[in-house]
Design a protein around this nucleic acid. Structure first.
Lengths: 235, 235
DNA sequence: TAGTGGTCTAGACCACGTT
DNA sequence: ACGTGGTCTAGACCACTAC
């Protein structure tokens, strides 16, 4: 592991656990250089990452201020998944895992030109026994060759990371709303015509190969999404 | 402007405009160093920012691949504002601008302990004449001292940037749903009890002073939110 | 082997905030 | 004047991808 990651991990952990308290100043860059026996750029890279993730605010001429991180989106680390509370009462049911011939929209979403088949996975995620999310997942079978009802319980990007040792690169996400179909209404125990939150996400590997396209229909009462944005001066 | 920002601007513009086409490789880092007459770290910083914003994917041993940027969230640059299409038909009405005594929630959201008053601004944003968003904005009057119906048409963070020369640092955002109140239903032309999308955002300046707290109620049919996330290896 | 990006260092210089 | 973070460079060395 690179040194800057060590430093990031160490500081992030201390901030999350409260060993380093919010509204205090981190040690200065020269101090951190000495404490961790490293060069300036290494320290600065770690601090940039902490700032990017909302742990600190760097202030020119003053130092690095520790921010309030409670309820901050930890899911940034997951990077690729629709928000879902990791509550103890959370449960996942896989309904089907099949290889299908993709429609135009799905093929486009996975960047297909050839007529490959794709994995189609359907799941329900429940919170405290109540259905909260209906997910349909389309996965490139040239990347994930084997898939069964059990291994499909975890998201494909996690599978790819843990089992295949590949790394997820980036993910684009879109949130919209529309009325529930009869099927969705019954699956989520809603009145027909009630709104569901549709979260589409496109996830790619580090080498830019498209891995999966997910459409998740969330129960409106159980949906919550948080985001941390940093303004970069770009002119 | 720093050199790396120049480089970022230049490349981002060329990618957006198609001068540099998607699915091609950027010039290599040494080539960019020579083209722009700069050092390696400067080039690398610009490329990191492009990667962070979804313009490119860096691939070890190969180069920097240009990604598909159409429909990518340009709003990352705005950083602090609920999504709203910048369509030509977009219009903003300011209903009221007042100094009020904040309630507990509002005071907490702005980080207040003292009993200052705060600005309260109410707006409606319309698309093609149809009301799309009802906004309530709470602004720290020690930062924005003067505010009238006209200057309140633009978001406070923009005001602060353009008029006061201060810079926005970061912003936290939360998206949830709840049934519309009678007032909201009539303002957005919804049936009472229909769902509205509630986007809360907390925006701070570069020196970590809290600037504004916004609660925006979006019409569900007109709501769309996109996000680009990058997986950082952090252990 | 050659070219690419990734990590790390040492040091110069600048800009900001405080004393 | 001093300490802080911000920019930039030059160069060493490593790791990955190609041929």
């Amino acid at each position: 592991m690179p040194k800057y990651q060590d430093l990031y991990q160490d500081l992030a952990k201390k901030i999350r656990e409260g060993t380093i308290k919010e509204d205090t100043w981190l040690p200065s860059e020269p101090q951190l250089m000495e404490q961790y026996g490293t060069g300036k750029d290494t320290v600065r890279k770690a601090l940039s990452m902490l700032a990017q993730d909302g742990y600190i605010q760097k202030e020119h001429g003053k130092g690095s201020l520790v921010l309030h991180v409670e309820n901050q989106p930890q899911l940034l680390d997951l990077a690729a998944y629709p928000y879902l509370p990791e509550a103890p009462g959370c449960e996942t049911k896989v309904h089907s895992v099949r290889l299908i011939q993709p429609t135009g929209e799905i093929a486009r979403s996975l960047g297909y030109t050839a007529r490959h088949k794709v994995w189609k996975v359907q799941r329900t995620r429940c919170i405290d026994g109540e259905p909260a999310v209906l997910e349909t997942d389309y996965i490139d079978p040239t990347i994930v060759t084997d898939l069964d009802m059990d291994s499909a319980r975890i998201p494909a990007w996690q599978h790819v990371q843990d089992e295949l040792g590949l790394d997820v690169g980036y993910s684009r996400k879109e949130i919209t709303l529309r009325p529930a179909s009869a099927r969705e209404a019954s699956g989520l125990r809603l009145q027909p015509g009630q709104l569901v939150v549709v979260v589409r996400s496109w996830t790619s590997l580090e080498d830019a190969r498209r891995l999966e396209y997910t459409v998740a229909k969330h129960h409106p009462d159980k949906f919550r999404y948080t985001d941390f944005l940093r303004k970069n001066k770009k002119g």
